[in-house]
Design a protein around this nucleic acid. Structure first.
Length: 571
RNA sequence: UGCCCGAUGGUGUAACGGUAGCACAACUGACUCUGAAUCAGUCAGUCUAGGUUCAAAUCCUAGUCGGGCAACCA
């Protein structure tokens, strides 16, 4: 059954620029449907951790509510299957939603709190003759249901007398039957082309300890018999979910109509898909079990915990969700968009530091041995209030191995024999000699510095094209730096012909290196984020760091147009 | 093969019968003590075929392609 609240589905927006869901809600409000109220809900099942796909739903649910005067969004745990649900997940989910920046206020709910009401609703349906107790075995059930191309058959139990149904249902609840002996089914239409309308299961017998209701119940309602009614009980106006539930909508509407209770409007949108990763729990679990990642919070995981540990900010994630938009087409989002969002935020707020991750030694021959001085460095050129700091300089330094080429590519303008570059915030140096070991590998660069250039420039206006970062060997602190990259090496690990996403794990998704960093970084606190100049954004790992020994996780590299030039043609 | 939903640059989206726009990516150039950031610019799109209309991305029909649906999961 549809009425005017649902027939407008797919209609064009009336408010320009809004996505189709926001437009529909604006229309509903303007037409005073739901008395002009806007109430949404985010309904996770507490049986796992939230991932970035959930972030899209959270931003939509809470975002929409916040856009309307008096609007609110409920956090409701859809906990009707005791099997893998736990308080631990409830807490983890609450933490993730809060971290993302949303607040449900007093509106924390649990479907398990509605069990008594749901039972009463079921009785009401039975009394009406709209539901019956079925004793088909699971195998028979499957046979009777039919397949998409063939109609189903009615169960022999379908015409059981109402009194008998009532009696059996009460005895199911009382625990008189074994698990699986009976189920409560809605009496709809076994020939419906929509499988969900072929007398769907409403309640099953399941002796399992529930993390909230304990052993109070041995029958549990199914999703379809819980979700809509919970929305109804809470006065939700717009029940937003992903397109997989589109075929459930007729059932959602049917049940509420049969029960003659308040009916919210369900609207579906396409779930998020992201290149180079997988998002479903089903796919995430084997990654952990098989040891491809360290756990749910591995910085390469698409879980909110993983992403957070990697160093992403809630601001960046919210910005990302906003830019991705809401539509009904199945879409795969370019990871470059996500990366752009973090860089954009971190560029504005992350203090800059110098760190050399793949060092080559530099000796400034005309700088006195045993001496040192400090140079002033800007903490964040994007934020004057971030101030400056002092960085120690001495005769022995480290620079990045990539910042030197013995036979420079024609577009390479960093250090090379005889060439002058600037050491960021310090001075100009010229490479005078290259020292190699027996295998021919460069082990040391002999250089001279121009004392005139102290502070980073000279009065003669001489142009120095390259500027490289550095650290003083004696002053630098050695720290572990974890270099993370995308978990898979193909954009669509599931779409590959062979079908096994494991074959497309990126062998270089994680590499631990020893970095030489400015000494002050030794005191960095877990969770602190920095830009390592010319390299990328890094954050202090919240799990493995210890006092005075921070471990840095690479969140994302800086954009690197040099790597593109280098990749193109040989110089 | 049944039913439902959808289709706009490389990617994600806007345009509600009247100028196809925005963002990301890519590419040029400017600037630069981060080959970053910033700034200026360029490239690039309405799935196909019919129909309705003065006018179609938009409405209709068919086709093609993509997604979803056959737990006593959610």
């Amino acid at each position: 059954m549809t009425d005017e609240t649902t027939t407008k589905e797919g209609a064009r927006d009336s408010a320009s620029g809004l996505d189709f869901i926001r437009s529909a809600i604006v229309e509903d409000t303007a037409a005073s449907r739901f008395d002009g109220r806007v109430v949404t809900r985010f309904p996770p099942e507490p049986n796992g951790y939230l991932h970035i796909g959930h972030a899209k739903a959270i931003c939509l649910d809470f975002g929409v509510a916040a856009e309307h005067e008096g609007g609110r969004c409920h956090l409701r745990f859809d906990d009707t299957n005791p099997d893998n649900e736990s308080l631990e997940f409830v807490e983890a989910i609450k933490e993730d939603v809060r971290w993302l920046g949303f607040d449900w206020g007093d509106h924390l709910y649990f479907a398990s709190d509605y069990y008594a009401q749901l039972f009463e609703y079921a009785v009401r349906l039975i009394r009406k003759g709209s539901a019956y107790i079925c004793d088909l075995t699971p195998e028979e059930f499957k046979t009777y249901r039919g397949v998409p191309t063939r109609p189903g058959k009615e169960s022999p139990s379908r015409n059981r007398a109402i009194d008998e149904n009532l009696d059996l249902f009460n005895r199911m609840r009382a625990g008189e039957f074994e698990d699986g002996a009976y189920v409560l089914r809605a009496k709809i239409d076994m020939e419906s082309p929509n499988l969900h309308l072929r007398d769907p299961t409403l309640y099953r017998i399941k002796r399992a300890h529930h993390y909230r209701t304990g052993d109070e119940w041995c029958i549990y309602p199914m999703y379809d018999f819980t979700h809509g009614q919970s929305d109804s009980i809470e006065g939700v106006t717009h029940s937003l979910c992903t397109t997989e539930f589109e075929v459930h909508r007729p059932l959602y509407d049917w049940l509420l109509e049969q029960l003659e209770i308040y009916r919210p409007r369900q609207i579906e949108f396409a779930p998020l898909n992201l290149e180079y990763t997988v998002l479903s729990k089903r796919l995430l679990i084997p990654l952990i079990k098989e040891g491809h990642v360290s756990g749910w919070d591995d910085p390469r995981m698409s879980t909110l915990r993983g992403i957070r540990r990697r160093g992403f900010t809630p601001e960046a994630l919210r910005d990302f969700c906003e830019r991705v938009g809401i539509a009904k087409v199945a879409a795969v989002t370019d990871v470059a968009l996500l990366e752009h969002c973090v860089r954009d935020h971190l560029n504005a707020v992350a203090p800059r530091r110098m760190a050399v991750l793949n060092p080559v030694r530099v000796v400034i021959e005309n700088y006195p041995e045993g001496e040192s001085e400090t140079f002033e460095a800007v903490n964040n050129p994007e934020d004057e209030t971030a101030g400056t700091r002092q960085v120690a300089f001495s005769r022995d330094l480290y620079i990045e191995r990539d910042d030197f080429q013995e036979e420079p590519h024609k577009k390479f303008y960093r250090l090379a024999p005889g060439r002058e570059v600037r050491l960021r915030y310090a001075c100009y140096i010229t490479c005078t000699d290259v020292i190699k070991d027996e295998s021919g590998e460069v082990v040391e660069l002999r250089c001279t510095f121009d004392p005139e250039s102290r502070g980073g420039g000279t009065s003669d206006g001489r142009k120095v094209r390259g500027t490289v970062h550095w650290v003083s060997a004696a002053h630098a602190k050695e720290v572990e730096v974890r270099m993370y990259d995308r978990l898979f090496d193909v954009p669509d690990p599931l779409g590959e012909l062979d079908g096994d996403f494991r074959k497309h794990l990126n062998p270089d998704s994680f590499k631990s290196v020893t970095g030489h960093v400015e000494s002050a970084l030794g005191d960095a606190e877990p969770g602190e984020r920095f830009q390592f100049e010319r390299l990328g954004y890094f954050c202090v790992d919240t799990v493995d760091s210890t006092a005075g020994n921070p471990i840095f996780n690479r969140t994302v590299t800086l954009r690197d147009s040099w790597s593109k030039i280098k990749g193109k043609g040989k110089g």
